[in-house]
Amino acid sequence: MARQRDIFIAFFRSGMLGFGGGPSTIPLVQKEVVDTFQMMTDEEFADVLAIGNTLPGPIITKMAGYIGYRVGGWLGLINALIAAILPSVILMILFLATLKQFKDFDFVKGMSNGVIPIVAVMLGVLTWDFLKKSHKSLGWKVGGIILCVSIVGMLILKLHPGIIIAGLLLIALLLPIKKEERKE
């Protein structure tokens, strides 16, 4: 039962503090499940995130479902999903009921604008962590090529990120990188 409590707390906190949607919740989920409750390692979390990003739908619910199931079975899955979405449901009801009255106040506009740089820093830290992990598994050369292909695809060619992810997964399946090529 203590494990179910930990699952609920981890995803409830992430859901409560993850202002701005999926990308802002990813570092929070990582902090809870890897550091605080030690439900998985950084590498396992990176794998869950990679797989979750290839599937449609909100990232927090996919991660909550998988991690909850992995750690606590079917009850853990349901527990984690409820914990992940409950804060949004409660806050949406409360905020929508009061937002109409206060939307033109400067402090409300300031709160919204103040969160954007915080989320940017959190995503930057997460990106740096993933770059370091890709260096360990792929090396700088292959990781840099994948990074450049992704940037060119999204920013210059205006490809949807899902197409790039699917393409890179297909390439990874067809042309596996040999272990000796990874060391640089």
Rank of each mutant, 00 (worst) to 15 (best):
A64E: 05
N53F: 01
I26Q: 02
I59S: 01
I85G: 03
T41H: 05
D42Y: 07
L49E: 04
P117Q: 07
L28Y: 01
L77N: 07
D47V: 10
G73K: 01
S112V: 15
P87G: 05
L96M: 14
K109P: 03
P56K: 06
G52N: 03
L91Y: 11
G20N: 07
E44W: 00
P27S: 12
T98M: 13
I67G: 00
G18K: 08
F95Y: 14
D42S: 09
D35Q: 14
T41A: 02
T25E: 12
S24W: 06
K103Q: 15
F102T: 09
V48N: 05
Q101C: 10
L55R: 05
L94P: 03
L75V: 13
M39E: 02
M92N: 13
E43Y: 10
N79Y: 04
A80M: 03
R70I: 00
K109Q: 10
G76W: 02
F105Y: 15
E32V: 01
P58C: 04
K100M: 10
A84G: 04
F107H: 07
G21K: 12
A83K: 04
Y66P: 00
T54K: 02
T36M: 12
M92F: 13
A46G: 04
I85D: 06
D42T: 09
D104K: 11
M39T: 03
L81D: 10
F37D: 03
M39F: 09
L99H: 12
K100G: 13
Y66C: 02
Y69A: 12
K100C: 05
I90A: 12
I59E: 04
D47R: 11
F45S: 02
A50K: 09
T98N: 11
P117S: 08
S112Y: 15
L55P: 03
A50E: 08
I60L: 01
Y66F: 05
V115L: 14
Q30N: 11
T25C: 11
I67P: 02
F107V: 13
T54V: 09
Q101E: 15
T36E: 14
S88K: 05
F102V: 13
V33G: 01
I82D: 09
A46P: 00
V48R: 05
L77H: 06
G68Q: 03
G68H: 04
F19E: 09
D35H: 13
G73H: 01
A83P: 05
Y66Q: 01
G76L: 02
I59D: 03
P117L: 03
G52P: 02
L96S: 15
M39C: 03
D42A: 08
D42F: 06
S88M: 07
Q101H: 15
F107L: 08
G68P: 02
T41E: 08
E43S: 14
D104W: 08
L96W: 12
V115K: 10
Q30F: 06
D35T: 13
M63L: 03
G22I: 12
A80V: 03
F37R: 04
I90R: 13
V89S: 08
I51N: 09
G76M: 03
T98I: 15
F105L: 15
N53S: 11
L75Q: 14
M40T: 07
G110W: 12
A80L: 04
L96Y: 14
I82V: 15
P56C: 06
Y66K: 00
P23F: 13
K109V: 07
A50H: 07
F45L: 00
I93D: 10
F105E: 15
L77I: 06
Q30H: 12
F19K: 11
G76F: 01
G114D: 10
R70C: 00
D35S: 13
